[in-house]
């Protein structure tokens, strides 16, 4: 085969490479929409938020020395309702320490929402301006973060948690962080 003939093979070779990449993308279940957090393995942002219903403010200090999960939610967010039973289940089984941050929500609405759908959180802070969420790099609710004993963000999950995500991501992570 001369080099000239090889030239005619180029388009095919290029396409095969592309198709292989598409196939990899499809079969690995890779989701281009999922953005990794820029804060993974970095210290969680400092914050101090008003507690829901006049409770003491929620701050980073509350987390020191523990592995905690922070869930951003809102009463106006439909997917949060979808996620609620899973969070409730985790709370009931007492497997994680879950804190809630109500994103861009009025305290009264958040209270009503938690009454209606159940309150899986140890405590809830109210982020009315959304500034704390921005510091975490939140771009939509719900989002869930894991913070280790040293106050570093180790995991972020975008969108409603699913039983699969709990099994395949959250539980192994918990094991890892609990052991270290």
């Amino acid at each position: 085969m001369t080099w000239r003939r090889a030239l005619y093979l180029l388009p095919l070779v290029g396409f095969v490479a592309l198709a292989a990449y598409f196939f990899y993308g499809l079969s690995s279940g890779y989701n281009p929409e999922l953005l990794p957090s820029a804060l993974i393995d970095k210290p969680a942002p400092q914050f101090q938020l008003a507690g829901l219903n006049g409770a003491v403010p929620l701050t980073n200090q509350d987390f020191t020395g523990q592995v905690v999960f922070v869930n951003f939610f809102a009463s106006w967010c439909a997917p949060c309702r979808e996620e609620s039973p899973i969070l409730m289940d985790l709370a009931r089984r007492n497997v994680i320490q879950l804190y809630g941050i109500a994103y861009k929500d009025k305290p009264a609405d958040a209270t009503k929402y938690l009454k209606e759908y159940g309150d899986p959180y140890r405590r809830v802070g109210v982020d009315e301006t959304g500034r704390t969420a921005i510091n975490f790099g939140v771009y939509g609710v719900p989002e869930t973060y894991a913070i280790d004993r040293n106050g570093h963000i180790r995991w972020r999950f975008v969108g409603p948690l699913t039983p699969q995500a709990v099994q395949s991501q959250l539980m192994p992570l918990l094991k890892k962080l609990g052991a270290s």
Partner: peptide
């Protein structure tokens, strides 16, 4: 695409 490009590689020269 793959089929037509294969045909192309065979016949176009």
């Amino acid at each position: 695409i793959g089929g037509s490009l294969t045909l192309y590689a065979m016949r176009a020269p």
